[in-house]
């Protein structure tokens, strides 16, 4: 090992010069990459930890709802929202709890929870669903204008049918039959626009239901967009 031939000595020299010139830069680069990787891993670890803790609370929430415990379900949903607002469990918990609170007769809390998802939910689909469900609650309370406001911003394309149906419902109860028919027609049309496959159509029962809402308006067929 101790004896290097000339060629190797030369190479060694070359290497040393190279290192003198670029050594610092290389060290810094490697350090940055390593730190970035560590930070990324740490961030992931923290997120997993948050999710794991939130999961435990969420399971508790499911059980509280299952045993019809209104108070506990309210508390646990509140804890999810406050402590783990960035997790998917928080928005899921809020949606789940909102439904339960309506069944427990506490629509005020349901409102607040849905509103929270609308404002702080982590994905667009959940936010849209929350708006839709908020509109359903407002419709039950006869706050038609406010309900309609929830529906103004167009949702994710997949929810077009549901949004149009809700608009149709709002118009129908206000006696605006022609406009309601247009809305139901639009709902059916957006279902028919969804990509078709050879497999069973998952939208079939829903489409049939919409058709009955439309037909029950008792308008001449031409008023609705659908056949």
């Amino acid at each position: 090992m101790a004896v290097y031939d000339l060629e190797e000595q030369e190479q060694l020299e070359e290497l040393k010069t190279w290192w003198k010139q670029y050594g610092n830069a290389v060290t810094i680069a490697i350090t940055i990459v390593a730190l970035a990787a560590a930070a990324w891993q740490g961030w992931n670890w923290w997120q997993r930890k948050q999710a794991a803790e939130a999961a435990a609370v969420y399971v508790g929430l499911e059980q509280a709802i299952g045993s019809q415990d209104a108070k506990k379900s309210r508390e646990l949903a509140g804890a999810l929202i406050e402590k783990y607002p960035g997790t998917a469990y928080a928005q899921m918990g809020a949606l789940l709890s909102a439904r339960a609170q309506v069944e427990f007769g506490d629509s005020k809390t349901a409102h607040a929870q849905l509103q929270w998802v609308v404002e702080h939910g982590i994905d667009a689909m959940a936010k849209d669903l929350a708006r839709l469900r908020l509109a359903a609650l407002l419709l039950d309370e006869k706050s038609y204008d406010e309900a309609l406001r929830q529906l103004t911003t167009p949702p994710q394309a997949a929810l077009n049918a549901r949004f149009s149906e809700m608009k149709g419902d709002l118009l129908s109860v206000q006696g605006k039959k022609t406009e309601a028919a247009t809305a139901y027609g639009a709902a059916i049309a957006s279902l028919d626009k969804a990509p078709k496959t050879d497999g069973p159509n998952p939208h079939a029962p829903y489409r049939e239901m919409l058709q009955i809402k439309l037909d029950s308006l008792g308008l001449p067929v031409a008023a609705g967009a659908a056949k």
Binding site: L95, A110, D140, S172
Partner: peptide, 18 residues
């Protein structure tokens, strides 16, 4: 998380059931 939380509203339901 999606399907069990579905909240339909009495009015919307009645518009089909009635």
């Amino acid at each position: 998380g999606i399907s069990a939380s579905s909240l339909t509203g009495k009015t919307s339901s009645a518009l089909w059931v009635n």
